[in-house]
């Protein structure tokens, strides 16, 4: 069973529908007990970092998530909350990944827009999470903040700055893009995660 962490940040329907398409058994939950005993844990999230961290703390999940031992995947804001801190609301985060989340900067001359919204390439791919995904594949992104590159970077993308499109450390994984909205290439990543 996959536990999808429900901490009241945005719409979880797309992620659940994607799991449904893969025929995966999942449960939406904020219950630490259910989360601990799940085979896999997915942490989606859309919204603002400081209020999302507050919601994790209110549910006692800020101390549960970093101690999980099964594969955990953070998506979008979920990945950002797994970093050390975020520029958004100057927020201390879960410190799982050894990197910080910074604000992206628009640049009209170079055609760089923020939010970074749409399909962009992911490169320098590694880790079993991205097995079978071709170098330079396009994924669907929607975000204004991004995790800086670090040793745990397993995919890189470029929106004026190079940033971590995906991260990996031990049993923890994160993707900045939305695999649930990234067509068949995105579905493959979710499938890889389920198979870990």
């Amino acid at each position: 069973m996959v536990a999808v962490i429900d901490y009241d940040t945005g719409n979880l329907r797309s992620v659940c529908n994607a799991l449904g398409r893969l025929g995966v058994d999942f449960e939406l939950t904020a219950d630490p007990f259910v989360i601990r005993k799940a085979d896999k844990v997915l942490m989606p999230g859309v919204g603002e970092a400081s209020s999302a961290m507050l919601k994790l703390r209110e549910r006692g999940l800020d101390s549960v998530i970093p101690t999980l031992t099964q594969p955990v995947l953070g998506i979008c804001l979920g990945l950002q909350l797994m970093c050390r801190r975020s520029d958004e609301g100057n927020t201390p985060c879960l410190s799982i990944f050894d990197t910080d989340v910074v604000r992206m900067v628009p640049d009209k001359k170079k055609g760089i827009k923020v939010p970074h919204m749409g399909w962009n390439r992911i490169t320098s791919l590694k880790s079993p999470l991205l097995d079978g995904v071709k170098e330079g594949s396009y994924m669907y992104f929607v975000h204004s903040y991004a995790a800086s590159l670090c040793d745990g970077t397993i995919a890189v993308s470029d929106n004026g700055i190079l940033f971590s499109a995906a991260l990996h450390k031990g049993n923890f994984y994160g993707v900045q893009f939305h695999p649930e909205k990234s067509g068949d290439a995105g579905a493959l990543i979710l499938k890889n995660f389920i198979a870990l």
């Binding site: 797309s14 529908n17 398409r21 669907y140 939305h178 649930e180 909205k181 067509g183 579905a187």
Partner: peptide
């Protein structure tokens, strides 16, 4: 649509 289509 949301259940069956995997692009935005």
């Amino acid at each position: 649509i949301s259940k069956e289509i995997n692009i935005p």
